[in-house]
Design a protein around this nucleic acid. Sequence first.
DNA 1: CATCGAGACGGTACTGAGTACCGGCGAGTA
DNA 2: TACTCGCCGGTACTCAGTACCGTCTCGATG
Lengths: 216, 216
Amino acid sequence: MTAKERLVEAAFSLFAERGYDQTTVDDITERAGVGRTTFFRTFRAKEDVIFPDHEVLLQAIEARLGGATEQTALLAVTEGARLVLRHYLAEGERARTRYRLTRSVPALRDREIAGVQQYQRLFRGFLHDWMGGGEDTALRAELMAGAVVTAHNHVLRRWLSGRADDPLREFDAAMAETVGLFTAAGEDEASIVVFRTKKDLNALLPELNRVLGRNP
Amino acid sequence: MTAKERLVEAAFSLFAERGYDQTTVDDITERAGVGRTTFFRTFRAKEDVIFPDHEVLLQAIEARLGGATEQTALLAVTEGARLVLRHYLAEGERARTRYRLTRSVPALRDREIAGVQQYQRLFRGFLHDWMGGGEDTALRAELMAGAVVTAHNHVLRRWLSGRADDPLREFDAAMAETVGLFTAAGEDEASIVVFRTKKDLNALLPELNRVLGRNP
DNA sequence: CATCGAGACGGTACTGAGTACCGGCGAGTA
DNA sequence: TACTCGCCGGTACTCAGTACCGTCTCGATG
């Protein structure tokens, strides 16, 4: 068992017992049986000990995005997000413990948000490059990246709080809805119906539906 | 001049001279001519001194959202975001100094992200309530809130880095594109414009754009 | 006028996170 | 054996943040 694993074990157990603020780094290192210096060599800060796989996840996403073609870019992004979700699902109870901590301890909550931002940054850069990297697509890339991360977090939080029985299924649905926002009905078009009449509106509804390509 | 203002002045000047990490709270309070206790009574942490109006902005947004009706909900959200943008624009050089700091100091960057999350949370709650508060609209509300904040930040950063000459105009365009993602040709809605006229169509285009929430 | 209470401020002392630096220990190598 | 490289532990220090207490001012109230 490496020093890192022992530190993580000790930290999670102590946080569960006494709470985050009531646990010092000395407490953690003592239980882990390592020196205090080792802690700060392994983690940059006390808060990072509950996100031990953060760097690994970032690299996994980067690798997934790197192996994408022009045609599979959107798929790569959703699968990158799915990578994160699957990781949390595999963690099981530890992920839920982290969730409780991040919800109750402001310092950890902020830290998690900052971490999510790093995922988003990866997606944004990848999507923007995919779109050509021009200034006209910068906002669109940023919106897409944010939406993907938001959708992922939404499903993840539902599972973490026990409200999702089939998170991967929900993830697919959420992703479909999310990327649909950007792909359906084209860039900046809107359905516009222009007519002039004195008829009653109810009499016009069937014709309106026809123009809009719908079946009443 | 209140103690808070003097602390902010002292902090910004010292950060510009020596940098953030090289400036201690003692340095700030000494230049401001107040006691160290006063600093932590005024700001929760050292990082908060460069976001002195954060709470005020949050309350301003909340007030703006509170005075909205069922029909003006989307307008209220965009104007809430516009409130933030206008505040930064009015700040002028101080906002740019803050931007340089948040870009170079990780602690400040994380703090800012956490602050943005608070705006987003307000929008999300408001939009979700507006949509009825059901589980089926939770994701959609979250996506919209995230998109609005993203679009705002995108324009704000463009202005902060000197790439936007007319930020308010860009903001309107970005917001139109953003809310358009959710309203244009969406699930079972469509933008319908009804009018009768004999005018030339070209003369009507500006008005059409206004109705559609666009800036030509 | 006297005094009482509230609020703002400053000073002191303390905890604990994070850093810098040094020395020890074991494994591989010439 | 001597050397070095990498990992670890210990010590000492800075500084953010907290707790607590005493002081001052000001306005209200008797």
